[in-house]
Amino acid sequence: MRAGLRAALAVYAKDVRIEARTRETLGATLAFAFVAAFIFTFAFDPSPRTLAAVGPGIVWVAYIFTAMLGMNRTFLLEVERGTLDGLRLAPAPPEAIYFGKFFGLLTLLIVTEALLAPAFLVLYGLSLLNVWFAAVAAAATVGVAAVGTLLSAIAAHARAREALLPLLFIPLSLPLLIGAVSGTAAALDGEGWSGAGRWLQLILAFDAALIVVSSWAFAFVLEE
């Protein structure tokens, strides 16, 4: 258990260090996120009434597409540079590698989402400075990272991975997407515990189940 924790921390620290030195993935996801958020300006007439209806949807479509870009790269570097074999050979249980990668992806997504949030204020006047929104977003992002880490390990080895990852990720994360959009709408409407809280519970239950199943299934994906 302690050795596994240490291994997970080592994998996490490695990923953070790579990112801190190259800033490749964060740069790519942030640039993509801004474009994704910006394109909605032209998709509809941005009047306050329309925005109240579609605002949460805009936020989460931008977040989900950005997340897919980020998770695409989670295992890509490892496969391209052959370092995944090193991880396989490392004296660490597969779950430890899963959790190291999971926290790496989670950190990337949380940072991207936080940096993107002001863009919604500037472009659409949506203020996301809201405790309930933060809770819903954090919980949903945990689920996105849990499913995404597993699927990116599958997609990294596959041909046509850019097509395969969204096809697998969108239906499997649909409960999160529905919960996050509805929870965000409730949070922005000022419905705290009775509105956003209900969705938050659903998202947290999903997170718990999917972290358990994904970390268990990861061994079958990692295996050569």
């Binding site: 499913v147 649909l174 659903l202 239950a205 999917l210």
Partner: peptide, 23 residues
């Protein structure tokens, strides 16, 4: 093996999806 993993993960999401879509 991978398709089996996807199917098992899919089965795990079913109750949450049903509940989310219902609400």
């Amino acid at each position: 093996r991978w398709a089996a993993v996807v199917a098992v993960i899919g089965a795990a999401t079913v109750p949450f999806l049903y509940m989310a879509a219902d609400w």
